[in-house]
């Protein structure tokens, strides 16, 4: 016993010693590929006579100009606030609708075709309707962000509300919990991790919705910044805008993931399958 244990501990120690080296090698490899790709991109774009292809050096040189431009930050703030507002509305209503339709079967049946259709349809297809009903305005943008965020929240909440442990339901029944308390003290907390998973999907969709409306309805914001720069052949500045957009999305999903770990530490999405 002691022999195997000591060999194992030696192996573990050796692994621990080797681990940083392996990681170092990996970092080097990633850096090398990144450099290689940038280099090939830069050299290849030298053969492009039109001058329309964005280049790594061009993007780098465009950065100071974009980042010191106050109107860029106003645009970014504008879009971010619209996304946050739409997300908040979509998440609150999505959760409520999800809890209700998750627990009441006939309501779920009645609304199923709408939820399935609206979730499946590309958000872009809803932009013409939104602009006709709400004008070429920030209101149309907010509405589309809200719808974009609403659907994944509904679907994910319904999923969670239907997967509650039977023992908990039985206990609630035996204790004669009133339905309202069941909903808020049992179903809601048990569903919380699923709601957060829905929010994570919603962030990406909300960003796409905001950009799509800004493009088509010319609403001021980060999307229009990207569009105007691309149209006036400042494609490098345009790429910087896309980059900021991606960073916003990654920040959002990281924050939600961290919140989920804090608020529902018992939930382990990898273990459930």
């Amino acid at each position: 016993m002691s022999v195997t244990e000591s060999t194992r501990s030696i192996a573990v120690a050796a692994g621990a010693l080797r681990a940083p080296k392996v990681r170092q090698r990996k970092v080097l490899l990633v850096a090398a590929t990144a450099l290689l790709i940038l280099l090939i991109w830069q050299i290849a774009s030298a053969f492009d006579a039109s001058g329309l292809v964005p280049t790594p050096s061009g993007i780098l040189l465009a950065m100071p100009g974009v980042f010191t431009n106050p109107s860029f930050w106003i645009d970014t703030l504008d879009t971010s606030l619209a996304i946050l507002e739409g997300l908040a509305i979509g998440v609150v209503f999505g959760t409520l609708i999800g809890l209700l339709t998750g627990r009441v079967r006939w309501l779920r049946g009645l609304t199923a075709p709408y939820v399935a259709g609206l979730y499946a349809v590309p958000l872009l297809a809803l932009v013409p309707l939104a602009t006709i009903w709400l004008g070429y305005s920030p209101v149309a943008r907010l509405a589309l962000i809200t719808v974009a965020a609403l659907l994944p929240c509904i679907v994910s909440t319904v999923d969670g509300a239907r997967k509650i442990a039977r023992e908990l339901e039985d206990a609630a029944f035996v204790l004669h919990m009133p339905k309202r308390r069941v909903l808020f003290d049992l179903v809601f907390p048990a569903t919380l991790p699923y709601i957060m998973a829905g929010v994570n999907v919603a962030i990406g969709r909300a960003i796409v919705a905001a950009i799509a409306v800004e493009f088509l309805a010319s609403v001021p914001g980060l999307g229009r910044f990207i569009l105007i720069n691309a149209r006036s052949f400042h494609q490098d500045a345009s790429i910087v805008g896309v980059f900021v957009l991606v960073v916003l999305g990654v920040l959002g999903t990281t924050a939600v993931e961290a919140a989920r770990r804090r608020m529902a530490p018992w939930h382990n999405p990898r273990g459930e399958k």
Partner: peptide, 23 residues
Amino acid sequence: GTQWLVYALQAVPMVAVAPIVLI
């Protein structure tokens, strides 16, 4: 060498890149 790139590119919304593809 390239896995990080796949995940990074996947995070870019295609809608936002469309005007750049156009030019």
